[in-house]
């Protein structure tokens, strides 16, 4: 059946099995390949996207549930002004190794930075909780936490609508 939703601010219609996942639709039907599949069971966070401005594991969302809603993927986020700062913070901190989990971490980082009201005196613990839905096997997470600290010091403006 046809499903219509807003993808990265663009009205998108796909003809799909309504039971298939949002992840599958993004990757297989729309060739939006920046969102990765690490487990397919909502355990690793590699497929994190925004659904109506909240982060979700796209591998757990049947595409029918996405009808007439708004999805933002890494392809949308990377076009924003603030993304280059996130990119630089991750790069400079040395937070990337194999990189397979990183687009998911970027989405969780955006969500954290958007929702935090007072950016002063944020502890490691608060950052950890915010990113705890994402697994990484390479880095040991420390340089990712450092990247987020760098971003907290920069006062990024992330709009309510993400992009």
């Amino acid at each position: 059946m046809n499903i219509t939703f807003n993808l990265n601010n663009k009205e998108t219609t796909v003809k799909v099995d309504p039971r298939q996942t949002l992840l599958q639709t993004l990757r297989e039907d729309l060739q939006m390949l920046g969102t990765k599949k690490g487990c397919g069971k909502g355990e690793c966070g590699a497929c994190t996207v925004f659904l109506d401005n909240k982060i979700v594991n796209s591998c757990l969302i049947p595409i029918k549930q996405v009808e007439n809603r708004k999805v933002i993927t890494i392809e949308g986020v990377k076009r924003t002004k603030y993304f280059s700062k996130i990119q630089k913070a991750y790069e400079d901190s040395g937070a990337v190794q194999c990189g397979f989990c990183i687009p998911g971490f970027v989405m969780a980082t955006v969500d954290f930075l958007k929702n935090i009201t007072d950016k002063c005196d944020i502890s490691d613990e608060e950052i950890k909780i915010a990113l705890s839905g994402n697994l990484c096997r390479c880095t040991g997470y420390i340089k990712i936490i450092n990247a987020v600290h760098t971003l907290l010091a920069q006062d990024l403006e992330i709009p309510e609508e993400i992009i």
Binding site: E91, G94, P103, V106
Partner: peptide, 24 residues
């Protein structure tokens, strides 16, 4: 220039690295 900065990080962060499942 920062020689420690990884040469592959930039595109990986943007979701642009092509792993085998991205070959299309």
């Amino acid at each position: 220039f920062n020689k420690e900065k990884r040469v592959d990080a930039h595109k990986k962060i943007a979701g642009e690295e092509k792993y085998v499942s991205d070959l299309n």
